[in-house]
């Protein structure tokens, strides 16, 4: 039996009929056509499907769409305004070569959004623990950490550093 739900995604409210077994990530990608959120492992491991639900980062492959009823969802598409400047995290990833193939990037960005909201000035160790639920198949973690440090500095209004890519 389908259920009616109302969800707000990136500020836009949607009222939809969904099958209870529909996963939130499928609602986002296939019903709302927001394909920035990726499906990697589909087993709660890789973090590619990370989105924010009421400000909390969650893996949308392991939450039912019906559970998002009444909630506010943020996806990578909502980080920067249409045609506007990049979000500091997006800018940090661009400036510090925080992405290689880009598959993990939307999940990394959304996870880092909550990380910096909770802890605006994290240490390198706190960043590494903070993204421990997100796998980068290119193993580009060093540059991802620098990208998040860049965004942290920018959001706190202190000078930022762009670096040459680090290959390890």
């Amino acid at each position: 039996m389908n259920k009616q739900i109302t969800v707000t995604v990136n500020g836009t409210q949607h009222t939809l009929e969904v099958e209870p077994r529909l996963l939130l990530v499928h609602l986002i990608r296939e019903v709302l056509n927001l394909t920035g959120t990726h499906i990697g492992c589909d087993t709660t491991s890789c973090g590619a499907c990370t989105i924010l639900m009421d400000g909390k980062s969650i893996k949308s492959c392991t939450v039912l769409a019906v559970q998002a009823n009444g909630k506010a969802i943020s996806t990578v598409e909502g980080l920067a305004p249409e045609g506007g400047p990049l979000h500091p995290l997006q800018e940090g990833f661009k400036e510090n070569h925080g992405l290689h193939c880009g598959f993990c990037t939307p999940g990394m960005l959304m996870r880092a959004t909550e990380l910096l909201a909770d802890n605006p000035n994290p240490t390198e160790e706190e960043i590494r623990w903070g993204i421990s639920g997100n796998l980068c198949r290119c193993t580009g973690y060093n540059n991802i950490v620098k990208a998040i440090e860049y965004a942290s500095a920018k959001m706190r209004g202190v000078p930022t550093a762009s670096t040459e890519p680090e290959f390890v």
């Binding site: 969650i58 893996k59 392991t62 909550e114 421990s132 639920g133 997100n134």
Partner: peptide, 11 residues
């Protein structure tokens, strides 16, 4: 800190 990861601990 040792249970799963931050996103899983949020749920």
């Amino acid at each position: 800190k040792l249970i799963a990861d931050p996103q899983v601990r949020n749920r």
